[in-house]
Structure formats: structure tokens, C-alpha cells
Amino acid sequence: MKSMKMAVVCANGKAGRLIVEKAVERGIEVTAVVREENRSSAQNVIQKDLFSLVPEDLAGFDAVIDAFGAWTPEKLPQHSSSLKHLCDLLSGTWTRLLVVGGAGSLYVTPDHTAQVMDGPGFPEAFVPLAGSMGQALDELRKRGDVRWTYLSPACDFRADGGETGKYLFGGEELFLNEKGESVISYADYASAMIEEAINGSHIRERISVIEA
């Protein structure tokens, strides 16, 4: 059976490195797309800025995982521009695009009129970030030419949390585990992302994942 081929964009980041690690563990041939020297466990490397990628760079992959993140106010618009660029590169191809998303845009009402970021308890400092990621998702929904999947983490997304190996997939609405929590570690999120890349069929859908 042919080995799956995957590219991880921004593979040097915390989430990116863990996603690469989990993919390699599953026997996937991984190419890291990085601006600087590769610090992940990927077998292959494309050393290029995301915005300098051309269609030929991403040709032939079964899946491309977008682990891009921007945190400073002047770079927040790049959530939209970077995702648009990747979509343009993959337009009309069979390659799946899986996006490391945010939790702020998850819905908290059945009619989908209110989101997590709208709540009074949502940290004010994170509103701009959640808003920019939510806008990027809204723009992604309009792309009928790309086989995308957007994976939102739990509200409490723990960079240094332990790996449990137990997680639950959900849909567009915020949901809680049996302890009443919305939490997941980066490590468990990375495992869930790879599971979705291998087995999932959520084409042009946003899904979510929390620790069981």
C-alpha cells in the first residue's frame, strides 16, 4: 500500500512539530514547510516562506496541514491572507487542506447566532485574535474549489498539557466532556488532526475536538 504523503506548513511551531511527530509515528511521509532550519522530525523539507510557495511546491501531497499562527496586531490579517494563498495553490486539486483553527468561533447557541468569543467571560486580550481567525474561517467556507477541513480545539488549548490519547470529535458547537470541561493538549490535538487526515471525510466542514 502506498504511503500517505503530507506537508505541514509552519512545521517549526509548537503545534506544527507535534503534528509532524504524530504523522511520522503513523508511517506518513512528511515534508516540513519552514522558513528557517527545520526543527521537526519530518523526513523532507521545503525551506520557503509560506507566501513564497508556488503550486508545484504542494503538488502530489495527499494532505497539507496549515499550522500557521500570527499573534501580533499587525500580523493578525495574515490568518486570512495566508489561508487564501494556500487555497489558491490547492485550488481544483484532490489534495486535502486541513487547518489548525481556533475555538473562539465555535457556536454557543443552536441557531449559530452567538460564538464563544462573544461571551462575557472571553478574555478581552484574545478578542482580536479570535476575530481574525473567525474571519479567515468565514472566507474559507466560500471556497468550493478546495477540499478543506477546519479543526477547532477546545477552549482551553494547553501547549504543555499531557498526552492522554483520548479525545472526542464534535461539530460547530462548543461541547464539554463528562467532567464539564472544554480542554485539550496540543499533543492530543495533533493526534486528532492526523486521525482526521487519514480517516476523515469532513470535506468543507469545520469540526472540533476536546479531551475525553
Rank of each mutant, 00 (worst) to 15 (best):
S3Y: 00
S3C: 02
V8P: 02
V8T: 07
N12S: 10
A15H: 05
G16A: 06
R17E: 14
V20W: 06
A23D: 07
A23T: 09
V24Y: 04
R26L: 09
T31R: 06
T31L: 10
V33P: 02
V34D: 10
E37T: 14
A42V: 13
V45D: 11
Q47W: 03
L50G: 01
L50W: 08
F51E: 12
F51Y: 09
S52T: 14
S52A: 15
S52H: 13
P55F: 13
G60F: 07
W71Q: 10
T72E: 11
T72N: 03
P73M: 10
P77E: 13
H85A: 10
C87G: 11
G92K: 05
T93G: 01
L98V: 14
L98T: 06
V99H: 03
V100E: 08
G102L: 11
V108M: 11
V108F: 12
A114T: 13
D118C: 12
P120I: 05
E124N: 12
A125D: 07
L129D: 07
A130Y: 08
G134P: 10
L140P: 13
R141S: 12
K142N: 15
T149C: 09
T149D: 04
T149V: 07
L151W: 02
S152H: 05
D156C: 12
A159N: 03
E163W: 02
L168G: 01
E172I: 11
E173I: 07
F175R: 12
S182E: 03
I184D: 00
I184F: 01
A187I: 10
D188H: 04
Y189G: 03
S191K: 15
I194T: 04
I194H: 00
E195T: 11
I198G: 00
N199A: 03
G200S: 02
S208L: 04
S208W: 05
V209F: 00
